[in-house]
Design a protein around this nucleic acid. Structure first.
Length: 589
RNA sequence: GCGCCCUUAGCUCAGUUGGAUAGAGCAACAGCCUUCUAAGCUGUGGGUCGGUGGUUCGAAUCCACCAGGGCGCGCCA
């Protein structure tokens, strides 16, 4: 835990409660909360402690609350403690207690709000994990941003985070990619071959007609000349070229994906190749592990309820007993042609993550994979030698809006918006922040015009503007945060200043809550609120009389304290933006 | 037919894991610049938290049923 104001007072509340109710059960103590007051009339903080403990202590909540209030009122940080409502205790802090948070912020710098709730738990966050069959488009973007911000959040909360990308470079879709690239290669050699004519030769049907493979085909032609083609630059047997073309196309596209991700500020340190995993025999090993636990059998599944696939027929299959772990049905591991299902590969992949040391895993997926979650969690539960866990975050669909109209996208028609286009148009920071202003399990509209707007409507701008204003003051004041930490902050007594202090004091608590809930969007909302508090105080400095201007040459004591306050705001804003992976702006003119 | 997600102000959305009188922004109306960035700030109005029951000191939050929207439903990824 951090040693911030909230944590300190939460501890004191629990101590006071235990003094009144000595045999308080730990699970009840864990439910005791200290939360910011909803309305100013209730003071600064409120606790539900008496409500939680009243029943086991066989006391009336209001009476216990009164006793608790009397005890807490003696604490030096607390100005007043009063029982309220059905059994709450409202606490009013001494301004000094809030002011004391400022030196802590200024001395901690970007580490302010760091928490140890993660306790160094090795947690693997896997996100994006697109097929390397084309450029990143906007559909991949939300998962990339949410995963990356979640990783940043968990890192700040004291977890040992691994950021991972699973490269789906095995299976039918990369074969299809190889064929499409081969077509572009033949074209680069000068073979006049229409898509229709070529498609007839492609097993499983032609895919990936997009132009982005043209340069890759050309590069192959340059590197290999006619060596991969048949006589007269025609289609050669695939044994001759498939591996070469596939590896080259996948490698090239993956490199491009990494570049796109980097321009979004996403940097995963681990890229795991599905194909390498398969070639290592990992799938067989994982299945053997499950078999040794009696969780693998040969069986016939019930037909799915509702609409039946036309070619459905009962067939014995190699099955994983997912129902033993809460799934609706057992799940197949082998296809009818004898190859492994994607699920089988994924079991091996998660076993691999565990083998590499992951104690907890988070997968960020698109909502269309929702039906896959129970079986994957079942598999991890079945594998986990030491209780390793899997959580899956599903990101709902993003609808892109421009000029008030939905932007239609079709991969086939090549009208999808690439991630690169989006970043070029609105900027990486705005893309990230905007994506994080929604909880991931709700569908969202991404309004391109709004993300670019320079008004309060646009939260990114609003937060950046607050930071730029802070920096402007600090440039003028020419003071270092370290020196400001020694200022006399007792002059900060205006309600607007205290509100800002209260907000910043809630930062460590916000980090912990967001990390535990796996909800990075809470950080974005916190920053938006903090920026609002700051803009308000700023404008008070423009009022007649200007009592609250930060810099007042004839009042050095006030100036020192207020510039310290501004430095703290800048620090917390930077700290929050860093969690979200957004670069703070020094100036906006 | 079944499963998962969503439904909160005219619009876009929060709601601190069950807390007190449900909050922001936009839009509407009324104000604030000789000043540290007015790209900003202040105020006013606006609600049957989709519906009905239940659980308890207390429900937007948990449970059941219903309605609407989205996603998915042997061997695709």
């Amino acid at each position: 835990m951090s040693d911030d104001l909230f944590t300190l007072l939460h501890g004191k509340t629990l101590d006071a409660l235990r003094a009144l109710v000595p045999d308080l059960a730990p699970e009840l103590a864990a439910r005791v909360e200290l939360t910011p007051a909803r309305v100013p009339a209730q003071g600064d903080l409120a606790t539900n402690a008496a409500l939680i403990a009243a029943r086991p202590a066989q006391r009336k909540p209001a009476e216990l609350a009164a006793a608790l209030a009397r005890a807490l009122a003696n604490e030096p940080e607390i100005d007043a403690a009063e029982p309220a409502g059905p059994g709450f205790v409202n606490l009013r802090l001494r301004p000094a207690a809030l002011q004391a948070e400022l030196p802590r912020i200024l001395r901690s710098g970007p580490r302010y709000g760091d928490s140890r709730i993660g306790a160094g738990t090795r947690i693997n966050v896997e996100y994006v994990s697109a097929n390397p069959t084309g450029p990143m488009h906007i559909g991949h973007c939300r998962g990339a941003v949410v995963g990356d911000a979640l990783a940043g959040l968990l890192d700040k909360a004291g977890y040992h985070v691994t950021r991972e990308f699973y490269v789906n470079d095995a299976g039918a879709q990369v074969i299809a990619l190889a064929w499409a690239t081969y077509w572009r290669y033949l074209q680069a050699l000068g073979t006049p071959l229409t898509e229709a004519a070529f498609s007839a030769d492609v097993p499983g049907g032609f895919q990936y007609p997009g132009d982005y493979l043209v340069p890759i085909g050309a590069a192959l032609a340059e590197r290999h000349g006619e060596a991969l083609a048949g006589p007269g630059k025609t289609v050669a047997p695939s044994e001759l070229w498939l591996d070469t073309v596939r590896d080259f196309a996948v490698g090239t596209l993956l490199e491009r994906i990494r570049e796109d991700l980097a321009s979004l500020g996403v940097r995963q340190e681990v890229f795991t190749s599905e194909r390498a995993l398969l070639e290592s025999g990992a799938v067989e090993r994982a299945i053997e592990t499950l078999r040794s636990r009696g969780l693998i059998y040969e069986g016939v599944l019930e037909p799915p309820k509702g609409k039946l696939p036309e070619d459905w027929e009962p067939r014995p299959q190699l099955l994983f007993r997912a129902t033993a772990f809460g799934d609706d049905t057992d799940r197949p591991l082998r296809k009818s042609d004898g190859s492994n299902t994607y699920f089988a590969n994924d079991i091996a992949y998660h076993a691999d993550k565990i083998a590499r040391g992951a104690q907890a895993m988070i997968d960020v997926w698109g909502a269309d994979h929702g039906g896959y979650v129970p079986r994957m969690k079942a598999a991890v539960e079945a594998l986990a030698p030491a209780g390793e866990t899997l959580q899956v975050l599903l990101c709902q669909i993003v609808h892109v809006m421009r000029g008030g109209e939905p932007v239609r996208m079709s991969k086939r028609a090549g009208t999808f918006i690439t991630l690169r286009d989006l970043i070029d148009e609105v900027g990486a920071g705005a893309v990230r922040f905007t994506m994080l202003m929604r909880k991931p399990d709700a569908q969202m509209e991404f309004d391109i015009d709004l993300a670019r707007a320079q008004t309060r409507e646009n939260p990114v701008f609003y937060v950046q503007y607050a930071h730029a204003r802070c920096r402007s003051v600090l440039r003028r004041a020419e003071a270092s945060p370290e020196a400001l930490a020694d200022a006399d902050f007792s002059v900060l007594t205006d309600p607007a200043e205290l509100a800002l202090l209260r907000r910043m004091a809630a930062w460590p608590r916000t980090v912990e809550g967001a990390a535990q809930a796996r909800e990075p969007h809470r950080i974005a909302f916190f920053l938006y609120d903090l920026a609002g508090d700051f803009h308000m105080l700023w404008n008070r400095g423009n009022e007649a009389g200007a009592e609250l201007r930060f810099i007042q040459p004839d009042r050095p004591r006030e100036t020192q304290a207020r510039v310290g306050l501004v430095a703290a705001v800048a620090t917390v804003l930077r700290s929050g933006l860093a969690v979200l992976g957004v670069e703070p702006m020094e100036e906006m003119r």
